[in-house]
Design a binder for these strands. Structure first.
Lengths: 120, 120
DNA sequence: ACTACACATCGACGTCTGTCAATATTGATG
DNA sequence: CATCAATATTGACAGACGTCGATGTGTAGT
């Protein structure tokens, strides 16, 4: 990380210095808004679901593809997808009998920059 | 040193274009290792604790400073700090009567790069 | 030693969560 | 219309979680 003398920081350096989490104390309101997002991600099944969908061809995946990847019942997978969808991490689109889920890139990058990404 | 690098990735995983999450499906083992870290962060109080500590002067904070920032009992704060410490997100050091916590930068940036998207 | 202080642990409580079997809903097809 | 296939919803249950008051542990000062 770059040398930080507060007096000589350019605007770019000010932003790039550290993650929002370590730049200033998070307000309670912000924490209350962000925690549910992390909570939605903080489950092994949902993590794998996000990864399966995000890495799938076309950036989207049908539920039928996802069910087979787990040793869990169909309602359980449906439940996890609902959690991810309602938290804003997954977009949902019904095409015919099938339902396709797509990762919301904004939500993911938002989380990453909050936690610690110093990427521009 | 046991939990120092919970986010270890295979060589293949470390190379590529975008975040591990969207590059290839996460293995169950990886998901099982990463989810607890996110779970530790996925609470409003713990998010604010991490932020308070990480943004505090010197990168560390004494428990006495943290208790006053919340409307919660001292045992509750102690409990949350323990969760963050045992997950590897916080380092603990006792100096005299006081205990100082420090954010483990590695764990945070690891999580961020895992989640983050350098969209293709 | 005794007291005061900083922090951790324990035990108990209500609430939230992950999972399943059973059932409902919706769309395609004969 | 009747039926099947793909998802979602419901209800139930065990286990995990956040919180508190009470208590324990260790350190410093008198």
């Amino acid at each position: 990380m770059s040398k930080s003398n507060v007096l000589t920081l350019t605007p770019v350096e000010t932003v790039a210095c550290c993650s929002p989490l370590s730049r200033e104390p998070l307000s309670q309101g912000a924490a209350d808004r962000i925690a549910p997002l992390l909570k939605a991600l903080a489950d092994p099944v949902r993590l794998r679901l996000m990864s399966l969908i995000a890495s799938h061809a076309g950036g989207e995946a049908c539920v039928c593809d996802l069910n087979d990847a787990f040793d869990l019942s169909q309602p359980t997978i449906s439940h996890h997808l609902k959690v991810l969808h309602e938290s804003g991490l997954l977009d949902r689109e019904k095409r015919g009998v099938w339902v396709y889920y797509r990762a919301s890139g904004d939500a993911l990058t938002g989380l990453a920059t909050l936690i610690g990404n110093t990427a521009p």
